[in-house]
Computed example of a mutant assay.
Amino acid sequence: MPTESSATELTAVFARVQSMLLSLEHATTAVHQLAQVAQHLIPSAAGAGVSLIAAQGTRTSTGATDGLVEAADTLQYDLGEGPCLTTWATATPQRINDITDDDRWPEWSAAAARAGIRSMLSVPLMFRDRCLGAMKVYATVVDAFTDHEEQQLCLLAAAAATLLGSAQTRDAPQRLSAALQAGMEDRQTIDRATGMLMEQRATDAEDAHAVLLTASRAQDRPMAEVARQILERHPDPQS
């Protein structure tokens, strides 16, 4: 069953992330490995990375898996525009399905397209209501990322943000463990609700997941909370 496979996959990823913090001295080293995990977890990604932005506005990039990511990030910093900067400024995910047909960041998009990028996904790194930067994946084909990939990257970003934000505190392992456990529980709840909607609406996993995402945004509530409501009361969130 797809939902069980997804839960198993994420469980393995989170276990690896937790061991990073427990065994690596520097959080930035673990973040670099998180970028590699993101690329591995999302097969359509040609590269992944983390953009960190200091409180005073200093922009830096770490955890890039390859030169494609570094080049795309450098373009954003040089031009002062791009999806990762917007993700940091608004604390919201940004997705580009076709970079040649997206006019939100015209200079960056044109330059990135020349570098071979065709689509990308960027999600915020949130720690205690503060956005530390963005985690992102790039692809060399259009329409590489769906709502499913966005949800997966958001969970990884939550772990990375906890890692970065609390690495200097004594309770960092406990904080990360709690965050990962909560993320895993949310993922399982979303997967179960997705399966229920697939049966109720006779649709596939992507459409069912889109129903959850639409309801989450319309109600301004976390997707996991909407999913829990479905499992408890069995309503159709769009009814």
Rank of each mutant, 00 (worst) to 15 (best):
A48F: 09
A144V: 09
A55T: 10
V141H: 13
P43H: 12
A110R: 13
P43L: 10
Q94F: 07
R95S: 08
L153C: 01
T146G: 04
R104E: 11
T86C: 00
E150Y: 05
Q76D: 09
Q76G: 03
I117D: 03
A111D: 13
M135C: 03
A64L: 10
L121R: 02
K136Q: 02
C84D: 05
R114D: 15
P93Q: 01
E107S: 11
E81L: 08
L68Q: 14
E70C: 03
L132C: 10
P124I: 03
R118Q: 12
Q94D: 06
E70A: 12
L79G: 07
A139P: 08
T87Y: 01
W88Q: 07
W108E: 06
Q56E: 15
R118P: 04
L132M: 10
A55R: 07
E149P: 10
L125A: 08
Y138C: 04
R118D: 01
L125H: 04
L125M: 05
P124F: 00
T90G: 00
I117C: 12
P124R: 04
P43K: 12
I99Y: 06
L121F: 00
E107W: 03
Y138A: 06
F127C: 09
L121T: 02
E150L: 09
Q151E: 13
M126I: 13
E70W: 05
W88V: 09
D143E: 14
L153M: 00
T86K: 04
C84S: 05
G82M: 04
A64P: 13
T140C: 14
A91M: 02
P106M: 02
L79C: 06
